[in-house]
């Protein structure tokens, strides 16, 4: 199992460094590219957990669509790209720190509460759990109601965005 440990820590350090790059970068496109590194690292972590489908959906959706749309937003609007005169700095470092620590605490508490002390044993059964067909069956049989609720939520957000963006 030591290979997985090594890979985990290499990826984790790279992700943390890139995450610092996202907030430290003075060029907004560079920040978006650092974000791509973080998301790709997350996808690699999923692969380490034998969740291949989730990993590639992460690449497809987050890297292939979400960050591309960020870049689109940056390039199509006249947003400042370089931090020439502090234009990218909203001067809320302390607030940001509090929120970051709060989220970290919530995530740690959740993970320890849910999985504390449990270990993942790699087996063929685990690999087949991560297979596309298995994930699909789970989503559309076991978790169909949450899935539909999330779909409605996203649809509502989409309609809301159109309403807000239209001038008339």
């Amino acid at each position: 199992m030591w290979e997985q440990q090594v890979a985990f820590w290499v990826l984790a350090v790279a992700m943390a460094a890139a995450a610092i790059g996202v907030v430290r970068s003075r060029n907004i496109v560079h920040a978006a590219l650092f974000l791509v590194v973080v998301l790709a690292g997350a996808a690699a972590q999923y692969i380490l957990l034998a969740a291949e489908f989730v990993a590639w959906v992460q690449v497809l959706i987050y890297i292939g669509a979400v960050v591309v749309l960020f870049l689109f937003g940056i390039m199509l609007t006249r947003a400042p790209m370089h931090d020439d005169a502090g234009a990218l700095d909203n001067d809320q470092r302390w607030g940001g720190l509090v929120v970051a620590l709060f989220v970290l605490g919530v995530l740690i508490a959740l993970l320890v509460n849910a999985f504390g002390g449990k270990k993942i044993h790699f087996s063929n059964a685990l690999v087949s759990l991560g297979r596309t067909s298995h994930v699909g069956t789970d989503i559309f049989r076991v978790f169909v109601v949450p899935f539909e609720v999330v779909s409605m939520l996203l649809l509502a957000a989409l309609v809301g965005a159109v309403v807000l963006a239209r001038k008339d």
């Binding site: 291949e52 489908f53 590639w56 690449v59 497809l60 297979r131 596309t132």
Partner: peptide, 10 residues
Amino acid sequence: PPVGVLWLLA
């Protein structure tokens, strides 16, 4: 890969 065509789209 088992994800096959998704790889292409990614």
